[in-house]
């Protein structure tokens, strides 16, 4: 039995904020199971002595001068807003608290 269970998929849906219907959970469980079986082989060669590469071209210390620019007008900022009060974006009630 694989580690991908419907419960796990449902939990991942919560973490990723995608409301998955039961049918989607079932389908994804099967698909992910097959995919994970194929990609799990990365750990076969990833031994401790191999460093991780997160940037393909190694560079460091790339900074921007502390000069003002790139600012949007409020109209530009709100241009695509699904809802706003004219100054700020509006969302429906928030259940959870900030982190």
């Amino acid at each position: 039995m694989s580690e991908i269970t419907p419960e796990l998929v449902r939990h991942l849906g919560v973490l990723a904020r995608i409301q998955l219907e039961d049918e989607e959970v079932t389908r994804l469980t099967g698909e992910l199971d097959a995919i994970v079986e194929n990609i799990a082989k990365v750990s076969q060669v990833a031994s401790d002595d191999v460093p991780a590469t997160s940037h393909p071209i190694p560079m460091q210390n790339v900074f921007r001068p502390d000069e003002v620019g790139d600012m949007l007008t409020t109209d530009q900022a709100l241009q695509n807003a699904p809802d706003s009060d004219g100054d700020r974006f509006r969302v429906t009630a928030i259940l959870g608290e900030e982190q």
Binding site: I39, V42, V45, P51, A52, T53, S54
Partner: peptide, 10 residues
């Protein structure tokens, strides 16, 4: 997974 994949990259 992610960590190992980054090593494969190396």
């Amino acid at each position: 997974y992610y960590g190992s994949a980054q090593k494969v990259r190396t």
